[in-house]
Amino acid sequence: SLEELLKLARHALRHGEEIHVLDRVITDEHEIKRLIEELERLI
């Protein structure tokens, strides 16, 4: 769900981890922040 993805993204950002989204691995902090902003808009 989007909520789950948002939780994962926030966790990854906090802990400096990578996040796997739709067969992509996002490691860049700015990309993760952008993902979080997009998800928050959708929810």
Rank of each mutant, 00 (worst) to 15 (best):
I43F: 06
D28M: 09
E29A: 15
R14L: 15
L5Y: 05
E31S: 08
H11Y: 08
L35Q: 01
E4W: 11
H15L: 08
H20A: 09
L5S: 02
T27Y: 08
L42W: 08
E40V: 10
A9E: 00
I26F: 15
A12D: 00
L2V: 07
K7L: 12
H11F: 05
I19C: 03
R41E: 06
L6G: 00
E37H: 11
E40M: 09
V21M: 12
E38P: 00
A12T: 02
E37F: 11
E38Q: 13
G16P: 03
R10C: 05
G16S: 06
L5A: 04
V21W: 15
L35V: 06
L35H: 03
I43G: 02
E18I: 11
L39Y: 03
L5R: 04
I36R: 01
H15C: 06
I36E: 00
R34F: 09
S1E: 12
V21G: 04
K7C: 05
E38R: 12
E17D: 08
L2S: 03
V25W: 10
V25K: 05
L39A: 01
V25Q: 05
R24Q: 09
E18N: 11
L2H: 05
E40N: 05
R10V: 14
I36A: 02
E17C: 09
I19A: 04
L2R: 04
D28H: 09
S1V: 11
R24E: 06
L13V: 04
E18V: 14
L39T: 02
A9S: 04
R41L: 09
E37G: 08
A9G: 02
I26P: 02
L42F: 07
T27Q: 09
R10E: 12
L13N: 02
L6I: 06
L42M: 11
E37I: 12
L6F: 02
D23N: 08
H15Y: 14
I43M: 07
S1L: 12
L35G: 00
E3T: 10
E4R: 10
L2D: 03
H30F: 12
H30D: 14
K7E: 15
K33C: 03
R10S: 07
R14Y: 13
L42D: 03
K7V: 10
R34N: 10
E38D: 10
A9V: 10
D23C: 02
L2M: 08
S1W: 15
E17H: 15
R10M: 14
L5I: 08
L8W: 06
I36D: 00
E3N: 08
I32F: 04
E31G: 07
L22Y: 14
I32D: 00
L35S: 00
E38F: 15
L8T: 09
L13E: 03
R24C: 05
H20K: 14
L22H: 13
L5M: 09
H15V: 09
E37Q: 12
E37N: 09
E3A: 10
E17Y: 15
H15K: 08
E29R: 15
R14P: 01
L2T: 05
E37W: 12
L39Q: 00
I26K: 01
D23E: 06
L42R: 09
V21T: 07
E18D: 09
E18P: 15
V25T: 09
I43L: 13
G16R: 08
I43R: 03
I43Q: 04
I36C: 03
L8V: 08
L5E: 02
D23V: 03
I32M: 07
E17N: 11
S1R: 13
L42C: 04
E37L: 12
L5T: 04
E18K: 12
H20T: 13
E40K: 07
L2F: 08
L8I: 11
I36Y: 01
L6C: 03
R41V: 07
K7P: 00
L8A: 13
K33P: 01
S1K: 12
L6S: 01
L8G: 05
A12V: 03
V21N: 03
H30I: 12
E38C: 07
R10N: 10
D23Y: 02
K33E: 11
E3M: 12
I36S: 00
H11Q: 08
L5G: 00
G16D: 04
V25C: 04
L35T: 02
E4V: 09
R24I: 09
G16K: 10
R41C: 04
K33W: 08
L2P: 06
R14H: 13
V21E: 03
L2A: 06
L8Q: 13
L22M: 13
T27C: 04
T27A: 11
I36M: 03
L5K: 03
E18R: 08
H15D: 06
E3S: 09
E4L: 11
L42S: 06
H20P: 04
L35R: 02
H15Q: 07
R34Q: 14
R14F: 13
R34G: 08
A12R: 01
V25P: 05
E38M: 14
K33F: 08
L8R: 13
E40R: 06
R14N: 12
I19S: 01
V21S: 04
R10P: 00
H15S: 10
D23F: 03
H15M: 10
I36H: 00
A9T: 03
K33A: 11
E3I: 13
K7F: 10
G16W: 04
A9D: 00
V25L: 09
E40Y: 06
T27E: 07
I32V: 05
R10A: 07
R41D: 06
E31Q: 09
K33M: 14
L42H: 05
I19K: 01
R24V: 09
G16T: 03
H30A: 14
L6V: 05
T27L: 06
L35I: 08
D28P: 03
L22V: 08
R14V: 15
R24Y: 09
D28N: 11
E40H: 06
E37P: 00
R34D: 10
E37T: 10
I26C: 03
R34W: 12
L39F: 04
E37D: 11
R41K: 11
H30W: 14
L8F: 06
I26A: 04
E29P: 15
H20C: 10
E40A: 05
